[in-house]
Design a protein around this nucleic acid. Structure first.
Length: 797
DNA sequence: AAAGCGGTACTTTTT
DNA sequence: GTACCGCTTT
């Protein structure tokens, strides 16, 4: 083992080794992008253990489960699995939840409290707003929640808020004087429901350490060394917890990069890392400046951008070895064109360099931008995986099933109660639920308890409704008795059956219904996977892994955590720049580099926020190992409108010697050529435009080639005499997309997004009101207006 | 109680 | 362009 660590040390560069060997006292490791941060952190843990430190006395905090998992794995390789698993390593939230369960009673929560995700929290806020008789157009639930969240991140509890003149003033200025009441009632509701939201986990941890000397003493004495990853992203609540836990031994090692601080909107305080030296004057500082990930061109180009930010921790990141390709810039007319160029470039790399799909990442500022990329990838049959907010767990049917899981684990959870109570239909309608809510509010109890109150009739409930409610509660209660001693998978199946929810979805045979059933099955399957993984880790110990374990695990997942190997196996990755942090890919495309998009609109006003956007762009650039391509479009569809924006200022901040050709600048109207149609901004697409063809698009369009010239059309063959590509997926822009509706003929087999496969029987009407009568295999005949119908030729097997 | 409609807001990022 | 809400209808 000693030898192991010696070998580990030998592989490090000098600065890395110094950091790994500095085991006592406060340590700040400033780790540039790609500088081997994870290697240093894990080596340092291994080194601590080699020096006799008890692994269970090492606490390591990360932001994502993925980061924690990777570190654990790497530590296991160095010191063996047995020791590695004893290290207390995980996300801030998951580790703190563990502590909070131990001390739940001190805080007045049930030990098995559950956790609300963002959508649960939003609907709870909405409930409160209505309950208080406020207008939800003024008190927009999302905004209100953001405000509450900001308060919590800064440890402003309800009582502190009430006396916070500044906060109250700014609320009344924003015409929301009763926001504090919403905050108060929201907290009451959550507590009454035995629920914490994400922020409560940090707030309550602070309250615990502040108010219970015993808890502080107990928890902080469990650890001799604390390590914090991504320290630049910690907020005030996290900062204070770390400070308190490290107070005695002061063996706190934080790792981070101020240039990669991108979560200020979520309360992260870049000062935490900038001020570390003030907090711990005796600290040692190590700078990891050598980038092992990227080529020199990429590293230096990224440097040239980030140098536009003021007040950074001084450091000079550099790479050795190959200068590599210069950065490529794609300028496109529209987002479809941009996407097509990118896809073309991916195919080219695969053909000429033998790259694999999984070597590519497409990054963007907002999730909505994935659509155009997806469409182009799909039409070229390129496998891809989206890591996005709109994930599996946000689908209605999955949420329904999850509501039952949550309710069974915690019957006091009102939001889950309301979601589950009439799905499938039990004749417990809105009226009944409203009446029950009124009863619950006046008794000050959760809905589940309110159902058993005496005298519900006074609230208008009829005997039949009360009986139905109690039958529902009895079913939940019966299942709830099983939670603590039943295997999660087994219980999940019971719930799916007893609730009738599975049968409900199963009975729907439509295409969509089948997809929903598949999703519910997949959810239950994920419970099974969870149990199996845990059993494997437990190595034959007789533990039972229960549904509350599963819920906790799932509710603290992030976007990048959700994807498993099967999902990501050799697929192009699509994600936001935020989600990409901590990841790396040989080929990276940073897309949508336009003003008002990246940097985003809302950052226009404050220099502060522009700097955060710039750091985000820096993060995106530094994901690339080998080739970095940047792209922007002259016009793109946003909120159903065409928008034109000039290229992002960030592009011109890159020193030109790192670009493969000079920046073209804005795609301007030149007049005369048809190029102007791509830059005309918000003017709507006229019907008249539909008669124009993209045939001459190349003329006068500079270096741009038509994205599909020389390419095989996606499905079937071109039908028109013009030789234009035919049948795109979506007639987004009739000028550009070559008149899809005229391509359909009777007898063709088609595939419709919603109705499935079918055969065209007849085409009637004339452009643009062409209609098709289609006989669908599953659903019989339908008349579709081709202008709107989302259909394409059936793909030949 | 479910389905169908018309209007509106949405798009910054998320543990 | 779409998702969601609230209203109306069956």
């Amino acid at each position: 083992m000693e030898n192991n660590v010696r070998a580990v040390l030998e592989e490090l560069n000098e600065e890395q080794r110094k950091a790994v060997q500095c085991l006592e006292g406060p340590v700040l490791i400033v780790a540039g992008a790609g500088s081997g941060k994870t290697r240093v952190l894990t080596s340092r843990v291994a080194n601590l253990l080699a020096h006799g430190c008890d692994p269970s006395r090492v606490l390591a905090l990360t932001f994502t489960k993925k980061a924690a998992g990777e570190m654990k794995e790497r530590i296991a390789i160095m010191v063996g699995y047995k020791k590695a698993r004893k290290v207390v390593m995980g996300t801030f939230h998951s580790i703190f939840v563990r502590f909070l369960r131990e001390y739940a009673s001190v805080l007045g929560y049930p030990e098995q409290f559950t956790i609300y995700d963002q959508s649960d929290s939003t609907s709870a806020v909405k409930t409160v707003i209505k309950e208080l008789g406020l207008d939800d157009a003024v008190y927009k639930p999302r905004d209100v929640l953001a405000r509450i969240s900001a308060a919590k991140n800064n440890l402003i509890t309800v009582s502190a808020y009430k006396t916070n003149a500044e906060a109250l003033k700014s609320d009344s200025y924003a015409k929301k004087p009763r926001l504090v009441d919403v905050y108060e009632r929201y907290q009451q509701r959550l507590k009454q429901s035995g629920v914490m939201d994400f922020d409560d986990i940090l707030v309550n941890m602070n309250i615990l350490l502040r108010d219970s000397r015993e808890a502080l003493e107990d928890i902080s004495s469990r650890f001799s060394h604390i390590m914090v990853d991504e320290y630049q992203d910690t907020n005030l609540a996290q900062y204070i917890i770390v400070r308190k836990l490290a107070e005695k031994h002061r063996n706190v090692c934080v790792v981070g990069d101020d240039s990669q601080s991108i979560y200020a909107f979520r309360g992260a305080r870049i000062q935490n890392i900038l001020n570390f030296k003030k907090d711990y004057p005796e600290c040692r500082v190590f700078r990891l400046e050598r980038n092992y990930r990227s080529t020199r061109n990429i590293v230096e180009a990224a440097n040239s951008v980030i140098e536009h930010n003021a007040g950074r921790i001084p450091k000079k990141c550099y790479a050795e070895g190959d200068s590599g390709e210069k950065l490529h810039v794609i300028k496109a007319y529209t987002e479809q064109h941009e996407a097509a160029e990118i896809v073309y470039s991916i195919q080219d790399r695969i053909r000429s360099e033998g790259a694999k799909y999984e070597d590519f990442a497409l990054l963007y500022r907002t999730n909505a931008q994935s659509r155009a990329l997806e469409e182009q990838l799909r039409r070229r049959n390129i496998p891809y995986m989206i890591y996005s907010g709109n994930s599996f767990f946000e689908r209605a049917e999955v949420k329904d099933m999850m509501a039952y899981f949550k309710l069974v684990v915690n019957p006091l959870d009102d939001e889950s109660f309301k979601r589950a109570v009439n799905k499938p239909a039990r004749s417990i309608g809105d009226t009944t639920v409203k009446e029950l809510e009124a009863a619950a509010a006046s008794a000050g109890v959760p809905l589940f308890k309110a159902a058993y109150l005496e005298g519900l009739e006074t609230y208008g409930l009829r005997a039949a409704a009360i009986a139905k409610l109690r039958a529902f509660c009895a079913m939940i209660d019966r299942l709830a008795q099983l939670v603590s001693n039943t295997d999660a998978f087994e219980l999940a199946q019971h719930i799916a059956d007893d609730s009738g929810l599975y049968a409900f979805y199963k009975s729907d045979n439509s295409i969509e219904g089948q997809a929903r059933t598949a999703n519910v099955e997949e959810l239950i399957n994920s419970v099974k996977q969870f149990v199996e993984e845990r059993e494997e880790e437990a190595e034959g110990a007789e533990d039972v892994f229960t549904l509350d374990d599963y819920l906790e695990n799932v509710s603290l997942l992030s976007n990048v955590d959700v994807a498993d190997d099967e999902d990501t196996n050799n697929k192009v990755a699509l994600m936001t720049a935020h989600s990409a942090k901590g990841l790396e890919f040989p080929f990276v495309y940073v897309t949508g580099l336009e003003e008002n998009l990246f940097p985003s609109q809302s950052s226009q006003l404050s220099a502060h926020e522009v700097e955060e956007e710039r750091r985000l762009f820096y993060v995106a650039m530094t994901r690339a190992k080998k080739v970095l391509t940047l792209s922007y479009a002259g016009t793109r569809m946003r909120n159903g409108r065409h928008e034109s924006n000039p290229p992002s200022r960030f592009l011109s901040e890159i020193e030109s010697r790192y670009l493969d050709k000079p920046l073209g600048g804005r795609i301007e109207k030149t007049g005369g050529t048809n190029q102007d149609r791509w830059s005309r901004g918000s003017s709507p697409m006229g019907v008249a435009g539909a008669t124009r063809r993209p045939a001459t698009m190349n003329e006068g369009a500079g270096p741009l080639k038509h994205p599909w010239v020389g390419q095989r059309p996606p499905y079937g063959s071109s039908t028109g005499s013009t030789g234009k590509p035919s049948t795109p997926l979506k007639p987004v822009d009739p000028d550009f997309v070559a008149l899809p509706m005229t391509a359909f003929r009777p007898g063709m087999r088609i595939e419709h997004n919603r109705f499935g496969f079918g055969e065209i029987l007849e085409i009637t009407g004339s452009v643009p009101e062409l209609k098709a009568r289609v006989r669908f295999d599953e659903l019989g005949e339908k008349l579709l207006l081709l202008k709107y119908a989302k259909m394409r030729l059936e793909k030949k097997a």
